[in-house]
């Protein structure tokens, strides 16, 4: 088990990513891990009853990478996991587009399942990303910064 995180495990990018390519890289030359757990987050077409047209992601360059690296190190300390990959997109995204990817491998499934959920839960409350949505509410278009959800904070606290 490694207590190190490295930059290859984290990507902050405008471009889309391929789930198949990411799974390939998690599995390539990795004959010790029997479990591969992946999570992908996508842009929904609705939020709080309004129609969403696009989502724009802003982040804090430098701090984003540092906070994700810390989360990955914590996951490696807690569970017996092999490879980790976290991808988060920034910029303007349309409905149905992929936003975030978390992939974790481990010998057996329990560690990869738990570590993947932990990384996502901590990313939600600790990594400096902000979402702004363009919505249409009764034909009226507007832009809103999303408010943080208490349910995300509560969920993350369950791990402490």
């Amino acid at each position: 088990m490694s207590d190190q995180s490295n930059l290859n495990e984290i990507a902050i990018q405008k471009e889309d990513f391929s789930l198949a390519d990411e799974v390939f890289l998690l599995e390539k030359d990795n004959l010790t891990d029997g479990a591969v757990v992946t999570f992908t987050g996508r842009v929904r077409n609705n939020n709080n009853g309004n129609s969403v047209t696009t989502l724009t992601l802003e982040h804090y360059p430098g701090m984003t990478e540092k906070s994700l690296a810390k989360i990955i190190i914590q996951a490696k300390e807690r569970w017996n996991i092999g490879r980790v990959k976290v991808i988060h997109r920034i910029g303007e995204l349309s409905i149905g587009e992929q936003i975030v990817f978390v992939g974790v491998t481990s010998k057996h499934r329990q560690d990869a399942f738990a570590a993947n959920e932990f990384i996502m839960d901590y990313l939600k409350v600790k990594a400096p990303f902000w979402k702004k949505e363009k919505i249409t509410d009764a034909g009226q278009a507007s832009e809103n910064w999303l408010a943080a959800k208490n349910s995300d904070t509560d969920k993350a606290e369950l791990w402490s």
Partner: peptide, 29 residues
């Protein structure tokens, strides 16, 4: 608030050369 890319509370001491950030609760993922 964050100082030099680490989340801190209001009592954190700031020195010359530090980068201090203020932002709303995060909403990524």
């Amino acid at each position: 608030s964050a100082v030099n890319h680490d989340m801190v509370d209001g009592n954190h001491l700031v020195k010359s050369g530090d980068e201090v950030a203020f932002f709303p609760p995060v909403t990524g993922g």
